[in-house]
Each structure stands twice: as C-alpha cells, then as structure tokens.
Amino acid sequence: MKWGVVTFPGSNCDHDCIYVLKELFHQDVQSLWYKETNLKGLDAVILPGGFSYGDYLRVGAMAAQAPMMKEVISFSKKGGLVLGICNGFQILTESGLLPGALLRNTSLKFMCDTVELSVSNANAKFTNRYTKNQKISMPIAHADGNYFIDSEGLKKLQDQDQILFRYTQNPNGSVDDIAGICNEAGNVLGLMPHPERVCEDVLGGEDGRALFESMMS
C-alpha cells in the first residue's frame, strides 16, 4: 500500500507516522510538503499532529486552506483513505471533510496523558482489526480536543455509526465522549489520540497498530 504523510509548517508528528509505516509495517511511504499538489498513485494520506501555522486564528484553520488540502479533498472524494490525527483531525473539520469542530478543552489546559478508549464501531475501514467495545489505551496531547457538534449533527453521527472511538473517561468535554469520527462514506477518519505513538511495546504500547492494520486489510 502506498502512503503519503503531509507536512504543514508546524507539523511535528509527521516523522513518527513515517517511522511507524516504514520501519514497523514495511510500507511504501512518502513525505508530502504542504505546497505539493500531487497525490497520484497513493492509497492513503495522513494529516499528522502538531501545531500547523502556530494554531493561528483557529486550530487547523490555516492548514485547511493550504494548497495540499484541495488535493486531499478531491483524493477523498475519489475514495482515497484519509487519516487525521490530533491537529490533522482539526484540519479535517476545518476543511469540511468531517462535520463539527474542535474547541478548547473545558479545563482550558493542554492535556498530555494516556487515556482509555472504547472502540464504538469495529466494522469501519479504520477499525476492522479491533473488536466492538474493545478497551484500548492511547496517548493524547492537545489543548483543543473538545469535539462539538449540534444535536442534529450528533444524531446523524450516532445513527450512521460514524463514531469510531469514545473516551471511557472524558478528558476534554467532547460531546458524547467522542474521540474519533469518520465521514459518511467511511474513508476519512479524524481522532484526537495518537495511534502512531503506541505501535511498539518499547514505546509504551501496541494498541495503535490495529488501526493501521485495519487500513491495510
């Protein structure tokens, strides 16, 4: 499978993703600069974590307007897999690929912790290697992870099983304990926790592996 990992100015988890895919999963990975506009031949694109454009205006707002995002949008419309992690999730909501928005944590604090998640839907393209209601742990590191959507939008997410991951103990005030959601078509996932940081026991866990394995299956 061919992967691209986008680097925006201020991304800082891009190399973690590249490392995991290349060294642990032996995948064909290329690094994509945010000004590039060529995603030809790729099967999946990752928008990594970080602080793109210094979080100016709103988290993810500037990156959502970067040249690369036009391509990512049309790539997703053609069915390409798009995974947004942390700041990548924020970019996906800002660009309209995912509904809702990410607000400041209710504590107003930057949270750096390991949290427990429950896999709410294990039939999705991104979760088929997990089991439903499986408890997994993943690190979070964010100030703006408080997922917001209006009640109508939330009902739609629930009815269409688009909520893939929920926190078992809500750390940031997210509506319905949401940690990660996918789009209606099921080929775009955004989540606040960092699966790429838990792919090796030596780094604290392997619960993130199944997410990448699901995408490859």
Partner: peptide, 9 residues
C-alpha cells in the same frame, strides 16, 4: 465564510 469565522461554532 471561508476563513475568518468557522460557522459551525
């Protein structure tokens, strides 16, 4: 509409 405000919130 396009950048200054996020009309979702």
């Amino acid at each position: 509409e396009r950048l200054l405000a996020n009309t979702v919130i």
